[in-house]
C-alpha cells in the first residue's frame, strides 16, 4: 500500500447484502450493511447467533463474496458485488489477518513455524521470517512456547500465537471471530487487551466478533447486528 492508501480506512463496506438460496429457501443474511473501520481502530461486532456477524466478517475477509455491495480496502475497491477486482488470495495474504475461536493453528507446525509460514508465504526469507516470528511471539509473551506444537499450548497461548500470525505481515485489517469464546474470563481479557495493544501500536484495524460483554470497554467502536442489519451500539465504547 502507498502513503495515500495508508491514510484511507482499513476497510470500508458499502451496501453489503448477502442472500443465501433463492425462492422459498431464500435467506437474507446481511442487508445493506455500511461500515468503516479505520487504521488503529478496534471495533466490536455484537449480536445474537444467526444475526449475520460471521457473514459480514467473512465478506470483509474476502472469503465469502457479497451478493451486492462494495468492499474497499485502503481506499481501493477490491470487491464489486460478488466480482473480485483483485487476486483475492494474494490480497488476503498481504492485507488481512485472521483469528478464530479455535483450531486456529496448523497442528503440524510449531508455534514459531505457524507465524513463520505466514511471512514466508509473503516472500520473506526463511531466516528473516524466523527472526520476526520470534520477535512477535516475544512481543505477545509466548516466546518460551515458540518451539512447542499447538497441542502443547493452552487456549490462551494458542490465541496469542494466532494473533502473532495475524499481525505478522502488518496487515491493514485483522478479523477475529469470537477469539475468546474458548477461554476463561481472565485469559479472554488478556487476549482482548492484546488486540487493543496491536491496534494502537501497529495501526491495524481490528474487527472482533464477540459475545463477551465484560470486555467491551476496550473497544473504540461497537456495532450491533440484528437480522442482517448493522447499527452503532448504544453500549458505550472506551
Amino acid at each position: 500500500m502507498n502513503k495515500d492508501a495508508e491514510s484511507k480506512p482499513a476497510v470500508e463496506v458499502r451496501g453489503l447484502t448477502r442472500i443465501y438460496g433463492s425462492g422459498n429457501t431464500e435467506v437474507i443474511a446481511m442487508r445493506d450493511v455500511n461500515l468503516t473501520v479505520n487504521r488503529g481502530e478496534l471495533v466490536a461486532l455484537l449480536g445474537p447467533s444467526g444475526a449475520g456477524k460471521s457473514t459480514l466478517l467473512t465478506a470483509m475477509g474476502l472469503i465469502n463474496p457479497p451478493t451486492v455491495g462494495k468492499i474497499l480496502m485502503g481506499g481501493r475497491m477490491v470487491m464489486d458485488g460478488h466480482r473480485p477486482l483483485v487476486n483475492l488470495r494474494t490480497f488476503r495474504r498481504k492485507n488481512i489477518g485472521f483469528i478464530f475461536q479455535k483450531s486456529n493453528l496448523i497442528p503440524f507446525l510449531k508455534a514459531r513455524e505457524n507465524v513463520q509460514i505466514a511471512l514466508e508465504l509473503n516472500g520473506w526469507s526463511s531466516f528473516a521470517a524466523r527472526k520476526r516470528a520470534w520477535n512477535l511471539l516475544d512481543y505477545l509473551g509466548v516466546a518460551d512456547r515458540a518451539e512447542h506444537f499447538p497441542s502443547a499450548l493452552s487456549g490462551g497461548q494458542q490465541q496469542r500465537v494466532a494473533v502473532a500470525r495475524a499481525m505478522a505481515n502488518q496487515p491493514e485489517l485483522i478479523l477475529a471471530d469470537e477469539p475468546t469464546a474458548a477461554l476463561d474470563s481472565h485469559r479472554g481479557r488478556q487476549v482482548m487487551d492484546l488486540f487493543r495493544k496491536v491496534a494502537h501500536e501497529h495501526g491495524s484495524g481490528i474487527v472482533v466478533v464477540t459475545h463477551d460483554h465484560r470486555a467491551l470497554d476496550i473497544f473504540d467502536t461497537i456495532y450491533e447486528m440484528q437480522d442482517g442489519v448493522v447499527s452503532q451500539s448504544e453500549i458505550s465504547a472506551s
Binding site: 494474494t90 485472521f98 496448523i106 505466514a118 508465504l121 509473503n122
Partner: peptide, 16 residues
C-alpha cells in the same frame, strides 16, 4: 482438509 483450508485462508497459493 482443515489445515489446507487454513493455509488457503492465510493466502497460501495453490502451488504450496
Amino acid at each position: 482438509l482443515h489445515d489446507i483450508a487454513l493455509l488457503k485462508l492465510i493466502g497460501a497459493p495453490n502451488r504450496v
